[in-house]
Amino acid sequence: MDVQLLFRIAGVGIIVAVMATVLKQAGKDEQGQMVTLVGVLVVLMMVVTLLGKFFNLVKATFGMY
């Protein structure tokens, strides 16, 4: 499950990078930046759930309720 998520994040990164390059080459720099920003946000959403789990784990481990 975790490895799959890692691969998914890597895939989104690669696709967003290629898309930004293509857009930049066509002279649409702003759209390229927009795509990069959206990619960052999407990946952040994925990571946030993981971070939440991590903090819960830390709380549970040290009994901080």
């Binding site: 998914r8 895939g11 989104v12 696709i15 967003v16 290629v18 898309m19 293509v22 649409k28 990619g39």
Partner: peptide, 23 residues
């Protein structure tokens, strides 16, 4: 010359990205 290829690439790539995100 500038946009024909770009729109093709962006179409395919956004499809792939959508699949990855929804997977």
């Amino acid at each position: 010359r500038r946009y024909e290829r770009m729109y093709r690439y962006v179409g395919v790539l956004s499809g792939l990205a959508l699949v990855l995100i929804l997977m």
